[in-house]
Design a protein around this nucleic acid. Structure first.
Lengths: 277, 277
DNA sequence: TTGACAACTGACTGGTTAGTCATTACTATA
DNA sequence: TATAGTAATGACTAACCAGTCAGTTGTCAA
């Protein structure tokens, strides 16, 4: 484990316990068994640490959820898996999720909200695509309401999950939420949200999806991954993206090689967003 | 306005802007135009200020919502009014509500969560009574889920309210939530929450409802209210509660006299809880 | 063994915090 | 006007904070 990862792990623990604001760098370095100076070799400031943590976890979560929604499957099953994956991710990254819910509207720094909003919007996009597959034109008027209600379900049941000490039956919970979502989507006649939310659910900033940004991510990963297949895949992927014609078959094959490595999930997500239908 | 009230008002503003943790006593006193020492004449610590603020607003909110639910009306109309009142209260005390949502799961101090939970449970009790009126036995299996879903609706739409700069059409929002609530309550077959939540929605601590506690509240108010009718009502109320036989007619009449004064709302709520069916 | 370089340390700076308390200003009664 | 009692002040303490940097330690190659 790199020093950076160690710091992130311990910081998350402390943030979850006491909140970001109330946790000092001192306490984090003590928990890590390193000196204060060593912290500043890995991160230039406390803010950078927090932003790194948000990026780190939100990328994992966003990529996983997107992957579930992109599958070629019965949309009803995907809806179930969407809920289940979401709750499983919250369980897996419980401490981070606690921090997230905790500081939610809270700022300390506008940059934090902005970053969280950015990833939130990405997930909203994926969810809207799923809703379109599920109900299509039938919920044209109410789709934003259905989206928001789904987020409300997730939000409030997550709170219970965190308040109670677990373990909950997440499969059963997801089943009941699928039922509720279908009922709401099929029966709701009155829309509330129309255009206001379009601003809130705005498209993600496009610069993230530039080819050069993706190439950078590949180069970053090249120095981190160890598996030879993955290294070669990254190398070929770079060539493909820089070449003139891109073979979908090769692309998908390469992404498949990389999909199981947590570090590469974000890259896979970015490439799929940009180059696959 | 008392000095205490001035401090509460300005503190709420600053807390809403920057969060509780990030707001110093210094800043609060500067905003009030008083010295640091003067603050400590009104509150013994920052924690006491925060707890006072929570009490102050949660009492107003709890009492108002309880009053809506207690009316003798068509339950469907009460459901609508329940939502509308909730959102109107959030709008009225927007700054406090922001602080509440902001620090939500956050502790800084366990005492804060405990207090918020206490009032949350009171509102849950009122909501469950309303659900019983609305759907009775039909939702015996799913009533806790319906309760939680209602809270999810309120939570997530409130977040939108706070994120967007308002103004939203709260009447329309409440109408759509009535529709959604009815749909969920009448159509949901699969229960998820059963007994776990009974622990979370536990009854409020009973000591709050002791007669002596209510008498104390009357005495506290006697030195604060100015309207002669209200002063006399408090005096007679005290006699009634200390006497052996309590006349329901007199009681209700007195409560009616006091109901319009914001300061007295909590007393009215307490007496109704204890002495009226 | 030596030298070069990177990793690491922790005392230190300048700043902010909650809370205290000797002192002063004000107010009301005699 | 004199006096007693209360309200208010703000300099002060001790603790903590993020971030810095001169100096130490560890490592590896020559």
């Amino acid at each position: 484990m790199t020093k950076k990862q160690l710091i992130i792990d311990k910081a998350i623990e402390l943030f979850a316990e006491k909140g970001i604001e109330a946790t000092s760098i001192q306490q984090i370095t003590e928990q890590c068994g390193i000196s204060k100076g060593a912290f500043y070799l890995s991160f230039s400031s406390k803010d950078e640490l927090v932003l790194s943590i948000i990026d780190h976890f939100m990328r994992l979560i966003t990529a996983d959820i997107d992957q579930v929604v992109r599958q070629e499957k019965d949309p009803q099953i995907k809806l179930y898996e969407f809920y289940l994956t979401t709750f499983q991710l919250f369980e897996k990254y419980a401490k981070f999720a606690k921090v997230l819910f905790r500081e939610q509207l809270q700022s300390i720094h506008d940059a934090f909200i902005e970053k969280i909003n950015y990833y939130d919007n990405l997930t909203n996009q994926a969810t809207l695509r799923l809703l379109d597959e599920l109900y299509g034109e039938r919920i044209e008027d109410t789709k934003y309401d259905v989206l928001v209600v789904m987020k409300g379900f997730i939000h409030i049941y997550s709170q219970l999950l965190f308040a109670g000490k677990l373990p909950f039956n997440l499969q059963l919970l997801s089943e009941t939420l699928v039922e509720k979502t279908n009922i709401i989507a099929e029966q709701t006649k009155l829309p509330f949200l129309t255009e206001e939310i379009v601003q809130l659910v705005r498209n993600p900033a496009p610069e993230e999806l530039s080819t050069s940004h993706i190439i950078e991510e590949i180069e970053r990963l090249t120095s981190q991954v160890e598996d030879p297949i993955e290294i070669e895949s990254l190398s070929i992927l770079k060539e493909q993206l820089q070449g003139e014609r891109i073979s979908q078959a090769i692309l998908l094959g390469l992404l498949h090689n990389l999909a199981n490595n947590e570090q590469c999930k974000w890259l896979v997500y970015l490439v799929k967003q940009k180059y696959t239908p």
